[in-house]
Design a protein around this nucleic acid. Structure first.
Lengths: 250, 250
DNA sequence: TCAACTTTTAGTTAATTTTACCATAACAAT
DNA sequence: ATTGTTATGGTAAAATTAACTAAAAGTTGA
């Protein structure tokens, strides 16, 4: 399509949208926009990705991120929430924008640019399978990702890379755990995301010394050994500490 | 425009692009895409942003990021480079994608979604003012940003936030310096970006102990005091160290 | 009720890194 | 030669991290 492009340079001198000079403005409004949601959860000692099975071409039958086209007068964040709800039943999920993907040939129906959104959710708060009427919504382990539709593997990998960076400098790991959790669970989570191991005693000392955890005075139940204390993340404490210059680091 | 939207849910069950059922596909291809470039440089002890002065409405006369519409068959990265060259004369700048901005009313001519791109450049390698024929290309201090056109302030602030995170975990600060630099310059740069101060002796020890700098055996000239050694960033050393598990941290 | 077992939790010490300084060296300018 | 300024090398205290030991607290099953 680039044959339409103005090849001389003078006509765009110092202007945005300088291409108006040669090409009717309508020619530029030929893009579609979509959103794709990367929803990560943590179960059974592993990080999991929520995917749907596509029922239509292209890529029919393949697993894919929940995603769809954005309406021309719809804001992107709202679209992401609408699409996620329609496809998985999940509601009120706070998502963060990731990167955009605009390869010219990424979609056969035309120029579709997609914007990635991601969220970390606690499985006990969201039960997509139960509340959703959508077909084939499943969790897959991020370490055993199948070949996904479109460029969705790329989107997921970008989110995972961002997550591994962010999780070290911001206390976002807690979003993956239930409201009440043990230090052991927290440690397993960090070990899973960062793919390392920590000394148990030192991990507990470090995290407790940050004063970010509230002791719920409750304990684990249904375990065949001494039950661990249950803690919860103290968001208010974190906010006030952060204002005093404290910076989380893992 | 959302009155066109299907309000029932059954028709999108389990499908991407399920909205096809009710709305003709053409209705979705009404977006335009643009790119906006956040070019950061470092001079006179400060971080500077490259802006142009808009010659056309909307926002005529205001300072703005170099940016323009993407052609329907043009890849986004190429568009970013084309636009940057057309508006500022800068060529071969490797840019990284930042976030996208799609507020419905952000542009009066229609639904224009813009993708931010950014790059850190060394001022001695690029002289946009000299090589560019574009009108009014200027550097402004990021700490004294004027009110920019559109949502460009938001775009810049997002890039700065990303930069401040990335610069601590990746050796990208060097991209802002000339090929050969003194440890003093490097320290000033980090202090400017992170808005702190470091102990001079400790800073030099820390950075040298990383073995990322090559001693060029040259020294500063034209200074009214003992000239400092000139170093250069050893990219190969960094790559091989990184593979051995080394992780940069500032 | 009691031993066996498992995991939590507390504590101790050595090693390492960070931080705060001090002293001197090297060069330019006068 | 003297003065001023910055680079550079060094040292010691403080703080943090890492490795390890051991006790405590619960469950389970005999």
């Amino acid at each position: 399509m680039n044959e339409e492009r103005s090849s001389s340079t003078e006509d765009t001198l110092g202007h945005q949208f300088g291409a108006f000079y040669k090409i009717p403005i309508e020619k530029f409004f030929q893009f579609a926009l979509s959103v794709d949601c990367v929803i990560l959860g943590y179960h059974e000692n592993g990080l999991k990705l929520l995917v749907i099975e596509r029922g239509t071409e292209p890529h029919k039958g393949k697993k894919a991120l929940p995603g769809d086209l954005v309406y021309p007068a719809e804001d992107m964040e709202l679209a992401a929430n609408r699409v996620l709800k329609d496809l998985t039943g999940l509601e009120n999920v706070y998502m963060t924008q990731s990167k955009s993907y605009g390869q010219v040939d990424r979609h056969p129906i035309g120029r579709v640019v997609t914007v990635g959104y991601y969220s970390l959710i606690s499985v006990d708060r969201y039960q997509p399978l139960a509340s959703s009427w959508a077909a084939n919504v499943v969790w897959v382990d991020v370490n055993e990702l199948p070949l996904l539709a479109f460029d969705h593997n790329q989107i997921v990998n970008q989110v995972l890379a961002t997550l591994r960076e962010r999780v070290r400098l911001q206390p976002i790991g807690f979003e993956l755990l239930p409201k009440k959790f043990t230090l052991g669970q927290l440690q397993e989570l960090y070990e899973a995301i960062l793919n390392t191991t920590f000394d148990k005693a030192n991990f507990r000392k470090k995290i407790l010394s940050m004063n970010l955890l509230k002791d719920t005075k409750e304990r684990q139940t249904d375990v065949a050994h001494r039950p661990a204390k249950l803690f919860s993340f103290d968001k208010k404490a974190y906010e006030s500490l952060r204002q005093q210059g404290f910076s989380f680091e893992m």
